[in-house]
Simulated assay, not measured.
Amino acid sequence: MPIDRLADLADAATAPRLVVKVGSSLLVGPGGTVRGEWLDSLVRELAQARARGQEVIVVSSGAIALGAARLGLAKGGRGSLADAQAAAAVGQIALASLWAERLAAHDIPAAQLLVTLEDLEDRRRYLNAAATLARLLKAGAIPVINENDSVATAEIRFGDNDRLAARVAQAASAHAIVLLSDVDGLYDRDPKDPAAQRLARVEGVTDEVHAMATGASSSGMGSGGMTSKLQAAEIAERAGIALAIVNGTHTAPLARGLSGEGIGTLFLPRRRDGARKAWLGGRQRMHGVLVVDPGCAAALGRGGSLLATGITAVEGDFGRGDPVAVRDGDGRTLAQGLAEYTAAEIERIKGRRSEEIEALLGYAPRAAVIHRDQLVLL
């Protein structure tokens, strides 16, 4: 049965595996105090979801906020990278305890997974994470996942748990994601504007939808905003996963957001890529850029491979097998894929036809610079 409305996310028949993302400002109040009554209500809802046959994964922020309060660090622990990492190291213990104790009260074991960007960008590590999640769910546990902020730096971090939740959902083959936010959903303009209208349903994230978003987090505590949630929806839709943004500030937020009347925004995917292409399309970090001419861009849109003849410029220093973005002459990102040549080799053969490449490189050319099987359109 396909997901068609918010209430379907609370139905084991339509959403047998659900990812729920909890932000820092929902879990931790001013001064680093835990919003215990609110958390108890959410855990009861997760236990109810389990009882009706749904498997649940939690992606939970809050470690830095909790750790900063315990260490007495200024700016909520975000004054410097060293402060954030120290706060995360202390706070993650507290965060895991919060979830473990409350889930145990419902006879549900909790499991902790800490990941960095590279854990879900590297194909082998991604598959290992997927296998671990599958085994934990089969064993009856609720995995509680967070970014490993105690070791992650700007180069190897997601930066927000919205996109992390989408990548976890991909790895876990989840059917739906619920992002608990501090607003009722996506509005057609700044929700502070009295004329703003909430969108109940969005079918595919387009440029027009992106234009409605603001990148700011109203709480000042978290690292995400509506922009990151839309990026999460894009990642989810490539795997055919529905995503909902609902207001998590209320007690029992899932009941309010996923009731028959449903208060939130439901994003329905327009596509469903295969597992490998969904993983590839959800990658955050590219090692380089290939700029292509209009004819090449059109051929890619028709499902073709990327050939050297259509490449006009090469940016970055990357090796064979590294992920690269494909852009047109106006800077729009069209696709991303795995390069069959190094950046230096592509620089030598760009704009050349296949019959010229062997003489330039000294060996028989590969079928394409990026084969269509290793390429995903964005």
Rank of each mutant, 00 (worst) to 15 (best):
G281P: 05
R124G: 11
Q48G: 14
D293S: 06
D4A: 13
K21Y: 05
Q284T: 14
T14L: 09
L117T: 05
V183C: 11
S80K: 07
A368C: 08
G295Y: 09
I93H: 13
R285A: 13
I311W: 02
H371K: 08
V183P: 02
S218A: 14
A172L: 03
I357K: 04
A105R: 14
G79A: 06
E234I: 10
Q170C: 15
A82P: 13
L266H: 00
A211C: 08
L180C: 05
E118I: 09
A313C: 12
S217D: 15
P323K: 06
A275N: 10
D4R: 15
L300V: 04
G264Y: 06
N128S: 15
K192N: 15
D293W: 05
E237K: 07
A7V: 12
S228F: 08
Q92C: 03
I245T: 00
S223V: 12
F318P: 04
V34H: 05
E118L: 11
A339L: 11
A100G: 13
T333A: 13
L164C: 03
D182M: 08
Q54T: 01
N161K: 03
A166N: 04
V292P: 02
Y363K: 13
N146T: 02
I235F: 11
K75I: 12
Q231P: 09
A94Q: 14
I156N: 15
F158W: 06
R35N: 10
Q284I: 13
R17T: 10
T249I: 12
R272I: 10
G204A: 09
A166M: 07
M212N: 04
P365A: 08
R366W: 09
R366N: 07
G215H: 10
R50T: 08
L186R: 00
G224P: 06
A7E: 15
I156A: 14
G36L: 10
C296D: 10
A166C: 07
L334Q: 05
T265A: 04
G225I: 00
L280F: 11
Y126P: 07
I145V: 15
I145S: 02
A15T: 15
S25F: 02
T333I: 13
K350P: 08
G77R: 01
G331E: 02
G225D: 01
A94L: 12
E347D: 15
L46P: 01
A141K: 05
V168Y: 02
L179P: 02
G79W: 11
M286N: 13
R189V: 10
H371M: 14
Q54A: 07
L375F: 08
G31W: 09
R35I: 08
H175F: 10
F267W: 02
A165M: 00
R353F: 14
L137H: 03
R123N: 11
F158G: 00
A87F: 03
E345D: 14
D11E: 13
I370A: 05
L66N: 01
A335R: 02
T214Y: 10
L360A: 11
V144H: 03
S173E: 15
V22A: 01
L98D: 03
